[in-house]
Simulated scan of single mutants.
Amino acid sequence: MPYEPPTHTVERSLRATTGAKIIAGVDEVGRGAWAGPVTVCAAVTGLRRPPDGLTDSKLLTVKRRNELAETLRTWVTSFALGHASPEEIDARGMTAALRLAAVRALEGLPIRPDAVILDGKHDYLGSPWRVRTVIKGDQSCVAVAAASVIAKVQRDKMMAELGADHADFAFADNAGYPSPVHQAALADRGPTPYHRLSWAYLDALPQWRHLKKVRSWAEGNVPEIEGQLGFDF
């Protein structure tokens, strides 16, 4: 299906209106998964012409996405990844976990960006970051599209590695999302150490419901960030 390639329109606008010179595109993957971390990539691209075919990672075949990710790793000016583990998601809720992963990614860049383009309509980063939210930014903004592809390929690789010890869950195929194979294995074997235990899917599994955790942080509460490691692979 044809699609419009991403542009630098938002980056140029931020440069003109705010004076920002270093602008990072930020996108996440894994928000809706039942297992594994939520992963955020921050990518700085400048205003160079992007590789052909760059777009939202979800619109690409696995083969093309992997090829583009390999190209992007050397094409971008810089990029960094941040993760929030299932334990952190359970303890803090998804909004705070997203911020945790995003800050880890942004602070992993060699130079702190002057502004951030965040995919979606909700600013989960907040102060002190200068944020511009863009709905479908992973399709329309070059830096966000680049972050989308790198984050997706990296997290898929991580989930495949995790799945090596839990073959019945097929993490290499579903990346921790609730596919039929994943759901069947979960009902039969119960959650792995990589599952998010505060999520509602456990309510439908009476044999495993006793494992459900109650969040120690209210959803949306953003606690102090204690470190940079996140999910250690």
Rank of each mutant, 00 (worst) to 15 (best):
A175T: 12
A204K: 14
F231E: 10
Y3K: 14
D52E: 12
H166C: 08
F79N: 10
H195Y: 00
E224Y: 03
T45W: 11
L118M: 12
L118N: 10
V116A: 14
P110N: 08
I117P: 06
A164S: 15
Q228E: 12
P191C: 01
S179I: 04
D203K: 10
L100G: 06
A147I: 11
V142W: 02
A184Q: 15
L211A: 09
Q139I: 11
V222L: 12
D138P: 06
A69H: 02
V153C: 03
L47W: 10
L202C: 01
F171N: 11
L197Q: 01
R64W: 09
F169S: 01
A143L: 08
P50L: 09
A172N: 13
E219G: 05
I225G: 06
G53N: 09
G220I: 03
P113S: 06
A102K: 14
D56T: 12
L211T: 08
V62D: 12
T55E: 12
V149C: 04
E226F: 03
W34Q: 04
A164R: 15
I22G: 00
G220V: 02
K152F: 04
K121M: 12
E88V: 10
D165I: 00
L229I: 13
E87V: 00
L118F: 09
A185E: 12
A218F: 14
V142G: 02
A167M: 08
L54W: 06
H83R: 15
E219T: 02
A218T: 15
F171E: 14
T17C: 13
